[in-house]
């Protein structure tokens, strides 16, 4: 393809609700820069929703708006039905938040003391899960917060987020700075936590492959707007990679098909084409064009996001 394919129209409607997290036409401007440009995001109760997008797409800003750490310029954001702007403290009490930055606020304080401090702010703090997580995440309560490595800070942040058993988790790049072992452990705890506590999770990341298996909803964000959001099964059904044999004298570069988002030449007279659309329709479209589909397979969330984000914006 000479130019990138156009972005297909992806579904954004997740139904009527009620939703655990919702953003309605949220706009956030910093002077002349628009970080969020009319974002409509919905996370159903009990969902594990991954928000994928490149750096600067607005993922962190959205989470901060939901936490009432930023005030939206327009639109509404709500957590469990509570308006984030009106009732910030109450919203934050329902949320376990891991921020983007690796900072624990008090560099001189010992980790154990920091845990005590945060426990005073959360009446639902669970000392048992705190002790267990601290042991399994290998957190030393005697060390000072300022001396910790990036990875250890992340682990403490995760502990602080889970310890009060919140019904909502907002995780901003939760695996950032963690080595393989720590990352694996974190996924293990999250899986366990999802069983033990009825939770809705919104995980924002630009690296999906690490948490793919925990996820059941996907939202793709670019330049402050959602390209699409849908349940994982819908993504697997709708976005597939088709391996097809093409006839002689066929120029794939000139071909345009509804919903095509990527095209790669295969060996000889074959192509690999990623298309958004109903499988039956796509296979029929291929047949009409003279190509014979040999196989279609779903993509991983990571591949799907990468492919969709490589498309051109519809002007």
């Amino acid at each position: 393809m000479k130019t990138s394919p156009m972005a297909p129209t992806l579904p954004v409607n997740l139904g009527e609700g009620p939703f655990a997290l919702s953003a309605d036409n949220v706009v956030k401007r910093y002077g002349s820069v628009t970080a969020l440009d009319g974002l409509d995001l919905k996370v159903p109760f009990g969902a594990v929703y991954v928000l994928v997008g490149p750096n600067g797409a607005g993922k962190t800003t959205l989470l901060r708006v939901l936490m009432n750490l930023e005030r939206s310029s327009d639109g509404q954001a709500a957590v469990l039905g509570i308006d984030a702007r009106q009732d910030g403290p109450r919203v934050r009490a329902q949320i376990g938040y891991v921020p983007e930055e690796h900072s624990l606020g008090y560099p001189w304080m010992k980790v154990g003391r920091l845990l005590d401090l945060c426990s005073a702010y959360h009446p639902t703090w669970d000392p048992e899960i705190t002790a267990r997580l601290a042991a399994e995440l290998e957190i030393n309560p005697a060390r000072r917060c300022g001396q910790l490595s990036k990875g250890t800070v992340r682990r403490v942040q995760l502990l602080l987020a889970l310890a009060h058993r919140p019904p909502v988790l907002l995780l901003d790049e939760p695996t950032d700075g963690l080595d393989h072992v720590a990352r694996d452990r974190m996924l293990e705890f999250l899986a366990e936590y999802l069983v033990d506590t009825p939770t809705t999770a919104l995980i924002s990341t630009h690296r999906v492959y690490e948490i793919e298996r925990l996820v059941d909803h996907v939202g793709v964000i670019r330049e402050g707007r959602l390209l699409g959001q849908m349940p994982l099964e819908e993504l697997r059904r709708g976005l597939r990679r088709y391996s097809a044999d093409i006839p002689e004298g066929w120029e794939p570069e000139e071909w345009e098909m509804e919903g095509m988002v990527a095209l790669r030449p295969g060996l000889g007279r074959s192509i690999e084409c990623t298309v958004w659309g109903e499988e039956e329709r796509v296979v029929a479209d291929f047949a009409v064009a003279g190509a014979n589909v040999r196989e279609s397979a779903p993509l991983s969330v990571d591949e799907a996001a990468t492919t969709l984000l490589s498309t051109r914006e519809v002007s």
């Binding site: 469990l80 039905g81 639902t124």
Partner: peptide, 27 residues
């Protein structure tokens, strides 16, 4: 969502007590 049990907020007294401890340590 009205029958949900929301997590309660900490009382001002608890926050004040905790901050007094923190300030003591900081000072």
């Amino acid at each position: 969502m009205k029958d949900m049990e929301f997590h309660p907020l900490p009382s001002t007294g608890d926050v004040f007590k905790e901050q007094t401890r923190t300030m003591g340590l900081a000072l």
